Computed example of a mutant assay.
Amino acid sequence: MSLIHYNPARTTTQGVNRFFDDIFGDNFFNTDAVQYKSFVPQVDISETDKAFELQFALPGFKKSDIKVDLNQGVLTVSGERKFEEKKDGKNYHAVETRYGSFKRAYQLPDSINDEQLDAKYEDGILNILVPKDVKKVQQKSIAVK
């Protein structure tokens, strides 16, 4: 079984329209990071015999800004990082750090142990361990009659 990435923004016309609006809209030459209200964090997904592991790159986030949910086999990771404009005398010429909200969802296979999911956030990386349930992994051949 493999993990299936679910991203509704890429499958709808809304995502296409947003893409073209970003390219040809009024904000084409505006590089102010505040204009972006959402972003997509980078994720590495790996699998072993015993578990799936997801690593989200979320630098600058606080643990309290991140939410991990499992509902009917869909693992959803969401969060928000707000831009805080500090009045410290600095004159920013570029801000490339990502701010705003994000939401990523993955359809998990039936062969997982949802009671033992583990999420840890350390050094800007969110690690989610999704253990497999060995009893559910067993495959069965069915004779055709």
Results as ranks from 00 to 15, higher is better:
M1T: 10
M1I: 04
L3M: 09
I4H: 15
H5T: 14
H5G: 07
Y6D: 13
P8E: 08
A9H: 11
T11W: 12
G15Q: 14
G15A: 15
V16C: 05
R18G: 10
D22Y: 06
I23W: 06
G25R: 03
D26C: 00
N27M: 02
F28D: 02
F29Q: 04
F29L: 08
F29M: 06
N30K: 00
D32H: 07
A33T: 09
V34A: 11
Q35I: 05
Q35M: 02
Q35V: 01
S38K: 09
S38Q: 10
F39L: 01
Q42G: 14
S46W: 07
E47Y: 03
T48L: 02
D49N: 15
D49H: 14
D49L: 13
K50R: 13
L54Y: 10
A57L: 05
G60V: 05
S64V: 08
I66W: 08
K67H: 05
Q72E: 13
V74W: 03
L75C: 12
T76W: 03
S78R: 13
S78A: 13
G79A: 10
G79F: 02
E80A: 12
R81G: 04
R81F: 02
F83Q: 11
K86W: 03
K86D: 06
K86Q: 11
K87H: 15
D88A: 06
N91P: 00
Y92L: 11
Y99C: 00
G100F: 06
F102W: 05
F102D: 03
K103F: 00
K103A: 02
D110L: 00
S111R: 06
N113P: 00
N113D: 09
N113V: 00
D114I: 00
E115D: 15
D118W: 03
A119E: 04
G124H: 04
G124Y: 03
G124S: 04
I125Y: 11
N127R: 07
V130S: 04
D133V: 11
K136D: 10
Q139I: 09
K140V: 01
S141N: 12
I142A: 10
K145V: 14
